[in-house]
């Protein structure tokens, strides 16, 4: 639900901005800029520190450690963390877990979103209300029964299916799909029906191509869920070879980090590897969103 408003935020500011330019005297932006710069520093510094810390031979937690010292730089921390938790294997596990969720969400979520937006069928109201309810009740509160069902009853411990199942269709993405499909004029679909297309053809050939930006939005917001998820894969996996990176890194933090020469360096190296795909994809998608949706809005 909230993600939609995020998108709206990305799209709307231009009009207000233009108004603000007319309304505000010239000197106003200075305090704004100061506040915003202070904010950006607070938000970005930990990421900067993460990268610098991951490259230090010996950890330097003093003020001088903030600036990278050429004599104290190394990639050894990445080797340490790779030996300890097998980064490649963990990344593959994270990728399969995340990929499965994105696949389920795009395929089944878009079908459900289309049905909720454009079709009239029995049970629609119930399905819509359940979709909203699911987004209010935190998944974590259902951990115990899900663990009983998936791990104990179905025997899906240490399997990708068990990892994916509780996240298989992202309800927020279904909501996003529905919102986008609602914006398409009904007449378009009626016309396709008159031309003899069946509903599945309408979804694949007419509806989905029209909501391509929604596929991106849904893909991105679905990606960060399982990629960053910790509790559920932590419960499902017992073998290290099945652990996604968030789990193997966390296990490293809580158990074996004491044995490494520079434990913080190794942890930060692992953190960089875990953070990089999500941050990278976000930057990429962000640019795309801005260029397609904001157009030539704000000239900074």
């Amino acid at each position: 639900m909230a993600h939609v408003e995020t998108r709206a935020a990305a799209r709307q500011p231009q009009s207000q901005t233009q108004r603000s330019v007319l309304r505000l005297p010239r000197r106003r932006p200075s305090w704004r800029l100061l506040v915003l710069l202070a904010g950006a520093l607070v938000f970005l510094f930990p990421f900067y520190y993460m990268v610098v810390g991951s490259l230090q031979t010996r950890d330097n937690t003093g003020l001088s450690g903030v600036l990278p010292n050429p004599g104290n730089l190394t990639l050894a921390n990445y080797q340490h963390i790779d030996q300890a938790i097998d980064l490649g294997r963990s990344l593959v596990n994270s990728g399969i877990f995340t990929g499965g969720v994105i696949f389920g969400t795009i395929v089944f979520g878009s079908l459900a979103g289309y049905a909720l937006a454009q079709l009239h069928f029995r049970g629609k109201g119930l399905l819509f209300n359940t979709m909203l309810l699911v987004q209010i009740v935190p998944f974590q509160l259902l951990t115990i029964p899900l663990y009983v069902l998936i791990v104990r009853d179905y025997g899906l411990a240490d399997s990708y299916l068990g990892m994916i199942l509780p996240f298989a269709i992202n309800s927020t993405a279904v909501f996003v799909f529905r919102q986008y499909f609602l914006q398409i004029p009904r007449e378009l679909f009626e016309a396709a029906r008159i031309d003899g297309a069946n509903e599945l053809q309408i979804v694949v050939r007419v509806a989905l191509p029209l909501i391509r930006p929604a596929l991106l939005t849904a893909g991105l917001l679905t990606f960060i869920g399982p990629w960053n998820e910790f509790l559920w894969p932590f419960l499902v996996t017992k073998q290290q070879s099945m652990e996604p990176l968030a789990v193997s890194l966390s296990n490293y933090i809580t158990t074996v980090s004491a044995q490494a020469a520079n434990p913080s360096g190794a942890i930060l190296a692992g953190a960089c590897v875990l953070a990089a795909p999500a941050v990278g994809l976000f930057l990429l998608f962000q640019r795309h969103f801005v260029s397609t949706n904001l157009g030539s809005g704000v000239k900074g």
């Binding site: 901005t17 106003r28 904010g39 970005l44 968030a246 999500a278 941050v279 976000f282 801005v290």
Partner: peptide, 26 residues
């Protein structure tokens, strides 16, 4: 503060959002 024509607007918006998309564990 962000709701105005200020320089580096996109940079600010991205930098505020980055922690949100990053894994808690990291």
């Amino acid at each position: 503060a962000l709701n105005a024509a200020i320089p580096f607007r996109r940079f600010f918006r991205i930098s505020y959002y980055v922690p949100y998309v990053t894994a808690s564990v990291a």
